[in-house]
Design a protein around this nucleic acid. Structure first.
Lengths: 234, 234
DNA sequence: GTATATTTTTTACCAACGGTAGGGCGTCGG
DNA sequence: CCGACGCCCTACCGTTGGTAAAAAATATAC
């Protein structure tokens, strides 16, 4: 019976939507409360109250507090991934005239992600202290680490390719990638910890700009300037 | 009666020592457990059990869990302060021939502090997330922030003096200092979060070295090389 | 339209945690 | 030998993350 089937299907679809909607509501409330009170001070009951639902309902969708927080940074993680992918594609098609341009774009991209979702970055830093946050159910932790590794590999691929194109000084990509990431995250974290409560620190932008200039200067600072190297294609 | 007085004094002294000893025992246990299980997983009961003392006894010496942790990083904080002071004195007496030497020394000093007390660094990073860790009694937090500010001012003083001596490019010290600190802490944190459990990550040293070279290269990378500038004294 | 099966949400609860009150015990001073 | 004092412990509290099981809501079958 096609009609009955489609009816069932429609109902299933509506349920799926309701489910998604509820998940979104929970995430929104969690994010608001996290921003307002911090991880520890916010309780699951708070979140439940905010969504006007009882606590076990939340546990139906997220299996722990850690899990809920992990879900919170998924969008930012995705955005980062996409941004890096875009940069990689652009690089592969020979779109960058210099290492400086590439690095500038990279910093801009990361900054963009931060701007659209600063809380996500704070959560990210929280998770960096793997052992420190709660039990951190092993599989939640594993998922986080796996995603992080992917991003790092992507970064290394980009840097390697840039070196192959002569845009950057030849050097060990592993520490280089780590330095770029550590510098960016470190600056964000440092400035963020200063202007707590009053929005973005006025030092964030200049410090990030300095960090960028620093990396750019150093990658072209070894006698031969990177910009002099011939591009491999166009 | 001098004899009775000295007796009393001796007793008081012994008590003081016992007190200090107990505090040290608690701190040692706390540090061990923190290293083993992380902040959240370790309970005050754990610490009490390890010291073979009951929980309220601990609360006699430390007024909260946060407070206990804050006490844990005092030695490292002091060591950092001393190291920077040494560097500042050396700089003021014209002991640095170049900005590179100064920056190298600085990185080495920070690395030294990290090596003698890696857990302290992890705790430091924990506290950086001010709002996130527990209630963080306002006065504990205030104490931490005050200490941090002092260290930062010290760093800026050093950089300013180095610029005055022509060792470093002239630039805004505030972001510069922030970048150096963020870079160091960021690298430590990043590498630390990788090799969790298996001791120091094999990438820590090369990454730190690269970070150092990067900063050094960038501070002498603006046309005029810093090393060419005339020293102001000696 | 009613009875049955299924899914979702709630009430009521637990164990574990940080922290505290109040009493007991040993030690010091007279 | 006695009282005072300081240290420490047992026993407890309030809160929190998390769960079991009833209850309510909803879909399905007849």
């Amino acid at each position: 019976m096609a009609k009955a089937d489609s009816h069932r299907e429609a109902i299933r679809e509506r349920k799926r939507q309701e489910r998604e909607r509820r998940i979104r509501d929970i995430l929104d409330a969690a994010k608001r409360l996290f921003f307002l009170k911090g991880y520890q001070k916010m309780t699951m009951d708070d979140v439940a109250l905010e969504v006007r639902v009882s606590k076990p309902t939340i546990y139906q969708y997220f299996k722990s507090k850690d899990d809920l927080f992990f879900a919170l940074l998924a969008p930012a993680s995705e955005k980062t991934e996409q941004a890096l992918e875009r940069i990689e594609r652009h690089l592969m098609s020979g779109g960058y005239p210099s290492g400086a341009a590439l690095l500038h774009d990279t910093f801009q991209a990361l900054y963009g992600v931060y701007r659209t979702d600063p809380e996500a970055f704070r959560i990210l830093q929280l998770f960096q202290h793997s052992g420190m946050i709660g039990a951190l159910d092993e599989d939640v932790r594993r998922g986080f680490v796996a995603k992080a590794r992917l991003t790092f590999e992507q970064g290394r691929r980009i840097l390697s390719a840039a070196m192959d194109q002569g845009l950057l000084r030849r050097m060990d990509v592993h520490p280089f990638n780590d330095v770029v990431w550590a510098l960016f995250v470190g600056v964000i974290q440092l400035e963020d910890s200063k202007g707590r409560g009053k929005g973005e620190s006025p030092f964030l932008k200049p410090t990030l700009e300095l960090a960028e200039r620093l990396v750019i200067a150093a990658t072209a600072a070894d006698g031969r300037t990177a910009a002099n190297a011939p591009p491999t294609d166009t």
